[in-house]
Design a protein around this nucleic acid. Sequence first.
DNA 1: GTTATTTTATTTATTCATTGAACTAATTAA
DNA 2: TTAATTAGTTCAATGAATAAATAAAATAAC
Lengths: 394, 394
Amino acid sequence: MNRALVLRILRTGDQYSRAEIAKLTGLQPATITNIINDFQKLGLVEEAGEIREGRGRNAICLRVNGDRLHFLGIRLSRKYYLVGRFGLDSREIIKKKKYIDTNCAPFDVLQSLIKECHELIDYDREHEVVAIGVAVPGPYVRKQNRIVMMTGFRDWQEVHIEEELRKEFQIKVYMEHDANVGALSYNWSLGANENRSLIYVAAGQGVGAGIIIGGELFIGTTGTSGEIGHMSIAYDGPLCQCGNRGCLEKYCSSMALTKSLNNKIREGNYTILKEGCSFEDISDAVKQSDRLAVEEYEKACEKLSIGVVNLINAFNPDTIVIGDEIAAVDPELLLKTVQRITEERVLPEILEGTEIIAGKEDNDEILRGAGILAINEMLPDFLSGKRSLPEPEV
Amino acid sequence: MNRALVLRILRTGDQYSRAEIAKLTGLQPATITNIINDFQKLGLVEEAGEIREGRGRNAICLRVNGDRLHFLGIRLSRKYYLVGRFGLDSREIIKKKKYIDTNCAPFDVLQSLIKECHELIDYDREHEVVAIGVAVPGPYVRKQNRIVMMTGFRDWQEVHIEEELRKEFQIKVYMEHDANVGALSYNWSLGANENRSLIYVAAGQGVGAGIIIGGELFIGTTGTSGEIGHMSIAYDGPLCQCGNRGCLEKYCSSMALTKSLNNKIREGNYTILKEGCSFEDISDAVKQSDRLAVEEYEKACEKLSIGVVNLINAFNPDTIVIGDEIAAVDPELLLKTVQRITEERVLPEILEGTEIIAGKEDNDEILRGAGILAINEMLPDFLSGKRSLPEPEV
DNA sequence: GTTATTTTATTTATTCATTGAACTAATTAA
DNA sequence: TTAATTAGTTCAATGAATAAATAAAATAAC
């Protein structure tokens, strides 16, 4: 258990000396020496020069051997899929993106995905790929160990992604809701610690959230936590297909934004956009400061902010990250809007506990999260000895 | 750590044999023997007859010695306070209720409270009271180890309840938001387990929630989690003093219900109630099936249900308990309403993961929760040896 | 330049919780 | 009466963490 703790510290990618780790964990220096020795024997950790500061013996830097184990991460989206190869230190080694032909049957997509995975595995034969993590659009529920998609992705219901990948590659495959792995990814990049409470809001075609509590992913009883897209912010608002009214994602998903903007165009409002425009068109228009597009985008951000207000009041998390398509349109404007609305609507004593971040523009966070999922799930097996590490390369 | 695990199982109040505990914890029978031996030496656990079932040697029943340690629980409310004495098994030994004169200064209330605590401690001198748990109306924030009330209880801001009690009784004092200890209480009575995710909704003068995740209380970064009273269910609804609009508690707190009913009376609607009626009057009227009172109460329950819908979507908890004043008015009608609204508004795949319970009519849950808070916080110190148990009585 | 001080890391012996295996105890079914 | 079954204990062995002493390597002070 302490091994896991030490490794979690080192996995942040930063370098630490034994003494620093001892202080961070509260364990004795002797214990750290022992644990690090084990890790070095397993090839998980290596020394990386010394650091001189002040007087006293210089500290020896330690870092994980990122190439000791490799992992695949897959992000399956409605429009494309991403496959990436990651090191133990969550560093991206190589990645690929493929657009999905909308006419393409899920089974064929899966075959193409498998082909790409093979390529990524063959890319480096020296280091072994030991597990695969898959991020899929939520929501879904687990039923008798099978994953059943619920909305928007229903044609995939009969495709057993996990099983097929496991059969093909004979390694462990883990699957999660995309918002959940997004949370894992930020939890890692912000420096995982056991007190962290973080909510990653994936504002894309739908709106979902991944929740980190106590440094761990909280998925709820049946794995559907974070379905904030169906949180009502207007109890008598428009009916949603989930049965609820005034659902958050009716106001601020990319789908909602596209719909409302097209309506505005139909009403004859001036814009550089044409009727029938896609979300990508709108995104471009916002970047070109098209007045109507910016206006509508800001409105969507305001509604999203109401959702954030509710999350802060309910969770009082230390961090909220807003990511995915909607955030990528204009992270700055989004952040400004969220800050304005939260300052207006949350008691200052409560608000000050939470830092709000607009996700990076590139969408790789979720892909990396898929890789981290695989690492997180796999490592305990190695540390507990339930599974032995593959032979190290010579 | 395993000691804590074993004690947590026994603290449910049920009786277990060593073999059963071994199975439940996954530990070896020998380990359980050792741990139970220690507990018996400390007087924490005692044997209680045998149980015969099927073939094989009869199992020896074990149970916590509820009288080995005693605890005080205090529930401080706006209108009254409760003080209770509890055993290690969370059993209530004796309790007292005192109404607070609204003209009474907080300091005087505290003095009266201290007097009652003395009486409860003197009630049984054979068993030692080792800690006090205090439940206060939320929300509050901790600032430099001081607790600062935020709304509705502001005149208590300068009263250092924790410090005063600690000074007076020279034992540990723990303080929590009342909704949080309500959650602790139900977590206990439903059988604590490390996977439980439970939300206790305290619908009283305000609306707050206590959140159990992973069997533990989740209080957020700064301790303000569960402020669902200020969750907006109508983004353009009426302005709340918190700055938000359409806050849940504007629709379904006892204060809101009282206000809206008095408005209806003023408008001339028929009812047995008179203008200026209090929440207690309304509660009685509902119990007497006064049409207007029932109608307004049901409306409040519907709004509360919207909040519950949002909680289910966000948390996917295994249990939601709705308690406090509002629930006590008519738990059956409340439950029926919540079930109707949630079935309407939550996807069935998600809803089926959550059991919804209307709190018991008596309001002792929060008092007991205060006691459990003290027990929970105190026990680790005893088990880790940081603090030694008082001498057992002869 | 020597010595004292500080900080890092390791070695060694010790402690302590847990375990596995053999064992005792007590009960029922055959 | 014997075999089978279940409950619980004993005891030596294991293994992780620790305390204390020590080594190593640096700077500061004289």
